[in-house]
Nucleic acid binder design. Structure first.
Length: 572
RNA sequence: CGGGGUGUAGCUCAGCUUGGUAGAGUGCUCGGUUCGGGUCCGAGAGGCCGCAGGUUCAAGUCCUGUCACCCCGACCA
């Protein structure tokens, strides 16, 4: 491709309100342009990257037996009513008739399968597609990181038995790992919550990045990693388990309606406080939840336990349950009989401090089981850095940020059951199919790659997904010798199967150098003053201070070798 | 949906406190200059100051409403 024929509107400055690096560089490099919140056009360079990523995904899907197809984006209302997902809140509705825009395709593929598969002989099956998805995200963010319209690979497995189902899940996990490695990303799979898709087994693929949306916890001893929202929180061992605890004492603590204030006022660490929250369960009934003072309630764990989202109760309910204003609730002497649950760690608190269920008053020397009946103990807090690893008592959890680029789900018979996808087994018996679904955010992967690979001058694309593998900077297009040498090299590299961009613009050299860096093309060849001595200058974007002078006649062969070496770094 | 912020030239922003002729840089066009890391000098084009209403002799500036976008939370590839 010749630069003069391309459309690459670069910007010297990115908008100040674009904060994520990938967002800024995608805009500055002329890869994307916004149309609306979370809705972007892919300009020529952006599309080239998307296509390269998509191609890698296709190859890895075919490798595990995937078959590509393309399903509609327009869903009739009745289809989603079958599984109840017509109530999903991210759905876009299409007006004249009752259609939804496609957000994920479990129902569509299951509808096809239930009609066209009758026999175990037709299984297993692994259809997939790469397609634009529509989700009315409440808050799009970070450019391509979180969009209302985005490109996704979605795959669906259908199997006749659990062994096949497990194999499909494991195959897909491996395929995903290979995809991200080949895209030049440092990724890891973590245990995850299955969310709206449902099902039992679920893992996310994370690209580690300081600006990632998700928190990942990793065990220092083993390879175990989990999304923080999902990671089991192991209680810290009790200190002074045998120490005598004095009898209860009520103290005045004026104006201390949060843990921090109480801790500071009494000079007692938050670890000895017991936080008492009142939540409204899914049935509307209040539930009292106890946590150690320094811990955070995990909404997902609570929702799972109580059977639905359970937000904090309003002040009126708190007053009714505790007899006190917000901030002074405690497990001792509650007004109304309510269910009381606690994080397991609360059982380890000795000589604790709790709200007295009276304004500006707390109780000292509290002992669970002595001063109030033991509540039901569960894993309810969010695990954090320094916690004991759930898989190895010697291990400690370390925290990192990540961007979720892929997610695998095993949902068993969830969709085949609700939609009636059955087949006849070897004995002629009707059975439900087993399935899983698997997604990769293609456009998000593009952003994640930049988050992980950039420097002050711009992007550092891995060669496998770079818009071009090589850029030839023709320094003086009006110099016939330089132009001829650049054209020859351009043609030779194309013949050698290399994706090459010839910067043939009538621009000052500095502009071309700066933009080559911004655009992140892995190999740069400068055809300029060195040509007087018969040489071209070759450098890598990631180490641009190391420049090699290569004889013009040998340049094509040298660069081919270099490109092959770079390709090999991200091959499997 | 809750909280915070921003809307002024293609892009990045100043001007608003204290109302009085619409600004800079960059980009674009033209002339010259320079010629291997976003040259320099000069000239020029380019504006519904997000939109609607109000206050005022007078509104980019003050008030009310509204829309859009960005950031932080609840959700997800």
């Amino acid at each position: 491709m010749r630069f003069t024929q391309l459309f690459v509107p670069t910007l010297r400055d990115a908008p100040k309100d674009a904060e994520m690096i990938s967002h800024r560089l995608l805009l500055r490099g002329g890869f994307i342009r916004p149309l609306s919140s979370g809705v972007y056009s892919y300009l020529p360079l952006g599309l080239r990257v998307l296509n390269k990523i998509s191609q890698i995904l296709r190859e890895e899907m075919e490798r595990v037996g995937g078959v590509e197809m393309l399903m509609p984006s327009l869903f009739p209302k009745e289809l989603l009513e079958e599984t109840g997902r017509d109530k999903v809140d991210v759905l876009f509705t299409v007006k004249p008739q009752d259609y939804f825009l496609g957000f994920t395709h479990e129902e569509v593929i299951t509808d096809i399968i239930r009609k066209d598969i009758q026999s175990y002989k037709q299984l297993p099956l692994l259809p997939y597609q790469i397609q634009t998805k529509f989700r009315n995200e409440p808050r799009p963010r970070g450019g391509l990181v979180r969009c209302r319209e985005f490109l996704m690979l979605d795959a669906y497995s259908f199997d006749k038995d659990e062994a096949g189902n497990q194999l499909a899940y494991q195959n897909m996990k491996e395929a995903f790992g290979r995809m991200f490695t080949r895209c030049g990303l440092d990724s890891l799979s973590v245990e995850a919550d299955s969310g709206a898709i449902g099902g039992s087994q679920s893992e996310e693929f994370m690209v580690l990045s300081a600006d990632g949306e998700d928190t990942v916890l990793r065990c220092s001893k083993t390879g175990y990693a989990a999304n923080a929202e999902r990671c089991e929180a192991v209680p810290a061992p009790a200190e002074d388990a045998d120490a005598a605890v004095p009898t209860l004492e009520s103290v005045s603590t004026p104006g201390t309606s949060n843990i921090q204030a109480v801790s500071k006022f009494l000079g007692i660490p938050a670890t000895r406080l017991i936080k008492t929250l009142v939540v409204a369960g899914p049935d509307g009934q209040p539930v009292v939840v106890l946590l150690r003072g320094d811990r955070e309630l995990n909404d997902a764990k609570l929702a799972k336990l109580l059977g639905g989202p359970s937000p904090l109760a309003d002040a009126a309910t708190v007053l009714k349950v505790t007899g006190a204003p917000l901030g002074f609730a405690g497990p001792v002497g509650l007004q109304a009989p309510v269910r009381m649950i606690a994080d397991r760690e609360v059982a380890t608190v000795r000589d604790g401090v709790v709200g007295a269920n009276a304004a500006d008053t707390h109780l000292l020397h509290v002992q669970p089981g002595r001063d109030f009946p033991h509540p039901e103990y569960f894993d309810l807090r969010t695990a954090g850095a320094g916690d004991i690893s759930p898989v190895d008592p010697e291990g400690r959890l370390e925290t990192q940020r990540g961007i979720e680029v892929g997610h695998v789900f095993n949902f068993g018979t969830k969709y085949s059951k609700s939609m009636g996808a059955t087949f006849s087994d070897e004995n002629g018996t009707t059975q439900l199919m087993l399935g899983g679904s698997y997604g990769v955010g293609v456009s998000r992967t593009m952003a994640a790659a930049i988050e992980q690979r950039h420097d002050d001058n711009g992007i550092l694309w891995p060669i496998s997904i770079a818009p071009f593998e090589v850029v030839i900077v023709l320094v003086w297009p009006k110099d016939d010798m330089q132009r001829q040498a650049a054209e020859d090299l351009y043609s030779d590299l194309r013949v050698a199967g290399i994706d090459v961009l010839l910067d043939d613009r009538e621009e000052r050299p500095g502009v071309k150098f700066k933009e080559a860096d911004l655009l992140g093309i892995p190999v740069k060849v400068v055809v300029g003053k060195g040509l007087a001595e018969g040489t071209l200058e070759v450098s890598l974007r990631r180490s641009s201070d190391q420049k090699e002078a290569i004889a013009a006649q040998e340049a094509a062969a040298y660069i081919s070798e270099l490109v092959n070496a770079l390709r090999a770094e991200v091959s499997l």
